[in-house]
Simulated scan of single mutants.
Amino acid sequence: MTETDLVPVFDGHNDTLLRLYQSKEADVEKLFIEGTQGGHIDLPRAKKGGFAGGMFAIFPPPVEKTKRAAVPPAPSDNEPLPPELPRSEALTSTIAMASILFRLERAGALTVCRSAGDVRDAMAKGSIAAVFHIEGVEAIDPELTMLDVLHAAGLRSLGIVWSRPNAFGNGVPFRFPSSPDTGPGLTDAGKALVKACNQLKIMIDLSHLNEKGFRDVAEISDAPLVATHSNVHAICGHSRNLTDWQLGAIRESGGMVGLNFATGFLREDGRMNADTSLEIMVRHVDSLLQALGEDGVGLGSDFDGAMIPAVIGDVAGLPKLIDALAARGFGRALIEKIAYRNWIGMLEKTIG
Rank of each mutant, 00 (worst) to 15 (best):
K125V: 10
F174I: 15
Q37V: 10
A249L: 09
M203W: 00
P80G: 11
A98Y: 13
E143S: 15
P75K: 01
A223C: 14
H133Q: 03
G293N: 05
D141T: 12
L266V: 07
D118A: 15
T350L: 04
A46S: 11
N241S: 08
N273P: 04
N241K: 08
C236W: 13
H40E: 05
G35C: 05
P319A: 11
K65M: 12
M307L: 15
T36V: 15
L259W: 00
L321Y: 03
L259H: 01
F56K: 05
D302F: 10
G154A: 13
W162N: 05
L347F: 09
K212S: 09
M123Y: 10
D205G: 04
Q290A: 15
V161N: 04
A46F: 08
Q290R: 15
A167P: 12
G171I: 08
P177T: 04
D42Y: 03
V149M: 06
G237Y: 14
L259E: 00
D205C: 03
R341D: 08
N170I: 13
V226C: 02
E219M: 06
K349E: 00
G126Y: 00
T145H: 11
A192S: 12
A339V: 12
G345F: 14
I322F: 06
G213F: 02
W162H: 06
T16Q: 05
R45L: 06
A130Y: 14
M1F: 11
A223W: 10
P75M: 00
F214D: 00
G298C: 02
P319Q: 11
L278M: 03
L150A: 12
A130M: 14
A326I: 11
V232E: 00
M55I: 02
E252W: 09
L292D: 01
A129S: 04
D216P: 05
L321E: 04
I280D: 05
N342M: 04
S221T: 08
G117M: 07
L206Q: 01
G35V: 05
